[in-house]
Design a binder for these strands. Structure first.
Lengths: 182, 182
DNA sequence: TCAGCACCTGACCGATCGGTCAGGCATGCT
DNA sequence: AGCATGCCTGACCGATCGGTCAGGTGCTGA
């Protein structure tokens, strides 16, 4: 007879996800997560090496998808193609993982400093570059950064909007907002 | 002869502004501010009732200007006029006070909860409403929120771009991105 | 000369944080 | 039966946080 294996690991992940989305990563304590799960703080740290490990596991999939998108952008045939791939790919990612992205809640900048996420910074810089059509013109780079940050910051708030509605709305917005590649 | 009055109050404000812009409000301790100024933490709390009072004084002017903008939006003759006033006014505010806005560094959501800033939340909702042309259509509201959040989140990063260049770039972006009022 | 005030200090407070540790309990294998 | 292992607990740790407090210092006006 199969032993009844406790699912504490998964429960911690779920509780942490809910808490992070509510009060942010920094604003959530291990104590609160433990209380939600109904175990001790020490139990949380038995299943995860440290607090950051919880976030890392929660973000593993969206980060993997972001890496794939980065490869596709790098492999694009030219600036126009790179902009198209970046726009569609990023909107897709934002819609699919808007719950996970919401966890970061404006802590992007801080969290990107943490060792587990350093490479994300380089990827986001390449993403902005692609959005700007590889142009150095300030107006192009400003539009790219505003749109990128705006979507990242807000997509988590559209949990009640269905994918089929959010995706085309964001894509249309991106296409309008970004300057066409010259 | 005029007594040599120490300018500690102003120095604290300046140091806090630098620190907040660098590591955020939550991420800055009174200890660090005191060290930068060259005084004790107790001296900081002699000049300011508490940590929040420092932020409040730093944000006093941009908040006052935001209030004026809100009044002009409310007084607008119609949705199209409100959208125009909101767009121009907000871009203007973002450019003028981009250093102060940068202090909040993605802590908007948390800081808006603090008692000193509750009314800001209502204003920002009216701002989004005006951006969306008072429309309830999801696409319009999504575009409004993304653009607003994007500018608020990023304008602080354009310290090296002169006002005369940043303002038209942002205004053009907003006009492209927002849906025209039907 | 002296009281009073503005300004500032170091010591201290309670709370909270992430994280450690020794030990306990139940289960499954030998 | 006995041992190893997975899972978990409560007690504890050092660090840091915002904030308080009693007291000291030096200038000012009466």
């Amino acid at each position: 007879m199969a032993r009844v294996v406790p699912e504490t690991h998964g429960e911690i992940l779920a509780a942490a996800g809910r808490r992070f989305a509510l009060t942010g990563y920094r604003g959530t304590s291990l104590q609160e997560i433990a209380r939600d799960v109904g175990c001790s703080k020490a139990a949380v740290l038995y299943h995860f090496a440290n607090k950051e490990a919880i976030l890392t596991e929660l973000m593993a999939r969206p980060i993997a998808v972001l890496r794939e998108l980065d490869e596709r952008i790098v492999a694009a045939s030219g600036p126009a193609e790179a902009q198209r791939v970046a726009a569609e790919g990023f909107v897709d990612l934002a819609v699919r993982f808007r719950r996970e992205i919401a966890l970061l809640r404006g802590e992007f900048a801080e969290l990107l400093q943490e060792p587990a996420f350093v490479h994300i910074q380089q990827i986001s810089e390449r993403l902005i570059d692609a959005f700007a059509g590889h142009s150095e013109r300030p107006a192009a780079r400003i539009a790219a950064l505003v749109v990128l940050a705006g979507i990242a910051e807000t997509c988590g708030k559209f949990v009640d909007v269905p994918d089929g509605e959010l995706r085309p709305a964001l894509l249309a917005l991106v296409r309008r907002a970004l300057e066409p590649v010259d």
